[in-house]
Amino acid sequence: MTASLYWYLREFARIEWVRKFFFARTAPLVTPAHFRGFPEPTGKACQHALFCMMVCPAVGAIDVVHEGDGWKPRIHKGHCIRCGLCVEACPNGVLMSGRVLETMQAQGTALLVSFRISIDRDLCTGCGNCVTACPVNKQIDAQLGAGGHSSNDEVIMRVDDGDVQVLHEEKCTGCKICETSCPTQAIQIARILEGIQQPVEGGGP
């Protein structure tokens, strides 16, 4: 009986047992470095390509606002789902989040955004609204008239033979202003997003 009690007390008075019992703590509440948090600015200048907004899958999570003398992407907490796609899609590396940028560099991956202009010939009336509304057209050919006729071959599209002809699809920035200005919904801009991977030296991970 006495021996049993002795061993019992001895067992429970062990210093490490007492410490564990009274000061038990699991891992502290730290966020690991690789965690993909809300996107943060890297300090590089935003070029207003708006690919972040186009690629964002969440409703109202990101917008690009004019602040001071430049553009600035804003992340809305409560809407952002921290997928990191805006970080990947940005051609200028304005945003960062976790290891996304490092991983992209290490694996040679990128998100390419391109635009396809499709015009419904049956609906198009050749009014030229899309041609004059297009901000890229306006920059290339300042003389662009109300009819949408242009003698400049460098414009994205112009009215020829009573219909809109697309000349340089690759210059489209995907703003979709032509879509909203079209009275008959004849013009459609498809935003195409593709993931590409460049071969990296050593074959990558």
Partner: peptide, 11 residues
């Protein structure tokens, strides 16, 4: 996000 904004369900 859902109780704050509705996230992807708020459409």
């Amino acid at each position: 996000n859902c109780p704050i904004s509705g996230c992807c369900f708020d459409r």
